[in-house]
Amino acid sequence: MTQPKLILVGHVAGGFGVKGEVKITAYTADPLALTAYGPLLRADGSHALTVLSARPTKDGIVGRVKEVATKEEADALRNLKLHVPRDRFPEADEDEFYLADLIGVEARDPDGVVLGTVKAVQNFGADDMLEIAPAAGGPTWFLPFTRACVPDLHLSDGWLLALRPDEVGEREPD
């Protein structure tokens, strides 16, 4: 059985107060949406937390979770990444998609040759980058997720058009 596709929705920032509340940094547009997704999971798909009650903060939520009774237990979970199965999210509108939907999609060149498969979507601070696992094996490479480098998405068919940018090397003499 294959594990369902998981979407990273936040992480435990630590305990809050002295009564065992947990502070969670949310990566969702609406932090309180974390209460509607059901149990939050670890990266391996195992159960992590069940949010019982919550209130919003500037970057997430603070609340009670079923698995934590003390501040020490909450602090022990600091930096725990929290995920939700993709199927718990609403369907995206037409011409919209979740970044998680790109994972596993083939990257093809203009001639239809498979360059590799999208392994992850990374963001190192400037913009989203597709991490591509080459079809021929070897180290992964990165493709900027821009219209110039990815002009066509065919997600329902499982592929995207990948145009590698020109390599930047030493400058030609004037």
Results as ranks from 00 to 15, higher is better:
Met1Arg: 15
Thr2Pro: 11
Gln3Pro: 01
Lys5Gly: 04
Lys5Phe: 06
Lys5His: 10
Lys5Asn: 15
Ile7Phe: 02
Val12Ile: 10
Gly14Ala: 05
Gly15Phe: 06
Phe16Cys: 06
Phe16His: 15
Gly17Ser: 05
Lys19Thr: 12
Gly20Tyr: 02
Val22Arg: 08
Ile24Lys: 10
Thr25Val: 13
Thr28Gly: 00
Asp30Thr: 15
Leu34Ala: 02
Leu34Ser: 01
Ala36Asn: 14
Tyr37Asn: 07
Tyr37Cys: 07
Pro39Gln: 13
Leu40Arg: 09
Leu41Lys: 03
Ala43Thr: 03
Asp44Tyr: 00
Asp44Met: 00
Asp44Leu: 00
Asp44Thr: 00
Gly45Gln: 08
Ser46Ile: 02
Ala48Arg: 10
Leu49Met: 05
Leu52Asn: 07
Ser53Ile: 04
Ala54Cys: 05
Arg55Ser: 11
Pro56Gly: 00
Thr57Val: 08
Gly60Leu: 00
Ile61Arg: 03
Arg64Asp: 10
Val65Asp: 04
Glu67Asp: 03
Thr70Leu: 02
Glu72Ile: 08
Glu73Ser: 04
Asp75Gln: 13
Ala76Pro: 02
Leu77Glu: 08
Arg78Leu: 01
Asn79Cys: 09
Asn79Gln: 15
His83Asn: 09
His83Trp: 11
Pro85Glu: 11
Pro85Gln: 05
Arg86Gln: 14
Arg88Met: 00
Phe89Ser: 03
Phe89Val: 02
Pro90Val: 13
Pro90Tyr: 13
Pro90Lys: 13
Ala92Gln: 13
Glu94Trp: 07
Glu96Cys: 09
Phe97Leu: 12
Tyr98Met: 10
Tyr98Ala: 01
Ala100Ser: 12
Ala100Glu: 14
Asp101Trp: 05
Asp101Pro: 02
Asp101Thr: 01
Leu102Trp: 06
Leu102Phe: 05
Leu102Ser: 02
Leu102Gln: 05
Ile103Gly: 01
Gly104Val: 03
Gly104Phe: 04
Gly104Tyr: 06
Ala107Glu: 05
Arg108Gln: 11
Pro110Trp: 09
Asp111Arg: 12
Asp111Ala: 12
Gly112Glu: 09
Leu115Phe: 04
Leu115Val: 01
Gly116Ala: 07
Gly116Phe: 08
Thr117Trp: 12
Ala120Lys: 12
Val121Ile: 13
Asn123Ser: 09
Phe124Tyr: 12
Asp127Cys: 06
Asp128Met: 04
Leu130His: 06
Ile132Asn: 03
Ala133Trp: 02
Ala133Gly: 01
Pro134Trp: 04
Gly137Thr: 01
Gly137Trp: 01
Gly138Ala: 06
Trp141Asp: 01
Leu143Glu: 15
Leu143Ser: 10
Thr146Phe: 09
Ala148Gln: 15
Val150Phe: 00
Pro151Gln: 07
Leu153Thr: 09
His154Gly: 05
Gly158Val: 02
Leu160Lys: 00
Leu160Val: 06
Leu160Tyr: 00
Ala162Gln: 10
Ala162Arg: 09
Arg164Ser: 09
Pro165Met: 06
Pro165Leu: 04
Asp166Met: 14
Val168Gln: 15
Glu170Ala: 11
Glu170Asn: 13
Glu170Val: 11
Pro173Cys: 09
Pro173Met: 11
Asp174Lys: 12
